[in-house]
């Protein structure tokens, strides 16, 4: 209970810092929402008037605490730009980003774990070298390029999948998954490389441990040693990176969303920044930050599950 209370406190403190930081940062950005709304013909009087209407002429801290006050009651305001309630905007976009994130991680892990296990069986062997080369090939491939290559391959040449767009669940499960395959593949095919490399590295370290020796001495076959004894304690860095990926992707994958025209959080945020839509950016960043803290909290819990010594240390403190 004590631990949980501390985590809650952590959430609150982090959120406070992040929202304040966002406020400061978005405020110092050059450019002006009033110009975005009024367009290229705006007169200085109109701009000043609109700023006053939006309350942008008040001191920054006053505005921040104003915003914080209503945010605490669950009201993140309405977008300056198009009047859409910010909460609604986030709720609409979030499922897309979450689905993209989950599918991408499944793909990435689905490739990374088997490849890492197979390559540590003989480090420096043929498979290890080939998989490493393949990994770096994908790593050197920016997602803005991989995405378009996948579209040309899978939707045009093979005519299998839609090129762009998002189908919500309500239009059918397969339509929904179909529309998300290429975007998640674009992310997953790049992410597995990092996961594989860190898992491989940790596995190599673990394999030098006494308990692995013991397991081998008992005559266990190689794959059982790897799967049952080595994999779990070798997953620290993997889990950490995974947590970072997931946390990062809650904020959306801007480039992939843009290429595949997915209505995700990333594009929402990018549009908000480019339009200097302070209130939208503020709400979205706070929301992403909250999601992030929760994910990290879960990752910390996973450490404990993976290694009893951490669990013990945690309780001892």
């Amino acid at each position: 209970m004590h631990w949980l209370a501390r985590q809650m406190l952590r959430l609150v403190v982090v959120l406070f810092c992040v929202t304040l930081l966002t406020f400061v940062i978005v405020n110092i950005l050059p450019g002006d929402i009033a110009i975005v709304i009024l367009g290229t013909l705006a007169t200085p009087q109109d701009i000043a008037g609109l700023r006053a209407d939006l309350g942008l002429d008040r001191p920054m801290l006053v505005r921040y605490f104003d915003w914080l006050g209503s945010a605490l009651t669950g009201d993140l305001g309405r977008s300056y730009r198009n009047g859409e309630p910010v909460v609604q905007a986030i709720v609409d976009r979030l499922p897309v980003s979450l689905q993209l994130m989950v599918m991408a991680q499944v793909i990435a892990l689905g490739i990374a774990i088997p490849v890492a296990l197979l390559s540590v069986r003989r480090p420096g062997g043929i498979f290890d070298r080939i998989s490493a080369s393949a990994a770096f090939g994908f790593l050197a491939m920016p997602n803005f390029m991989l995405g378009i290559v996948l579209i040309y391959l899978f939707s045009i040449t093979f005519d299998l999948l839609p090129a762009t767009g998002f189908s919500p669940m309500s239009e059918g499960l397969w339509e929904n998954i179909e529309s998300m395959i290429l975007p998640s593949l674009t992310l997953g095919l790049i992410e597995w490389t990092v996961l594989m490399r860190v898992l491989r590295s940790d596995l190599l370290t673990t394999l030098k441990e006494d308990f692995i020796l013991l397991a081998r001495a008992k005559g266990l076959p190689q794959w059982r040693v790897l799967l049952q004894h080595a994999l779990r304690p070798s997953s620290f860095t993997l889990i950490t990176i995974l947590g970072l990926n997931i946390g990062g992707l809650i904020g959306g994958a801007v480039i992939v969303e843009q290429i595949f025209a997915l209505p995700g959080v990333g594009r929402l945020l990018l549009g908000g920044i480019f339009n200097r839509d302070l209130i939208l950016v503020q709400g979205t960043v706070s929301f992403i930050a909250a999601g992030f803290v929760v994910v990290n909290f879960l990752v910390d819990m996973l450490y404990a599950v993976l290694d009893p010594r951490v669990r013990y240390a945690r309780f001892r403190n």
């Binding site: 501390r6 952590r10 403190v13 982090v14 959120l15 810092c17 992040v18 930081l21 966002t22 940062i25 978005v26 110092i28 950005l29 050059p30 450019g31 970072l244 946390g247 990062g248 904020g251 801007v254 990333g266 945020l269 990018l270 920044i273 950016v281 960043v285 992403i288 930050a289 909250a290 992030f292 803290v293 990290n296």
Partner: peptide, 25 residues
């Protein structure tokens, strides 16, 4: 606690916003 808090704030802050701010400002 302090370090984790600091990291959390940095992490929770979307990379895109940070990079954009840096280059724009």
């Amino acid at each position: 606690l302090l370090a984790v808090g600091f990291i959390d704030v940095l992490l929770a802050f979307p990379a895109l916003v940070l990079a954009l701010t840096f280059t724009a400002y």
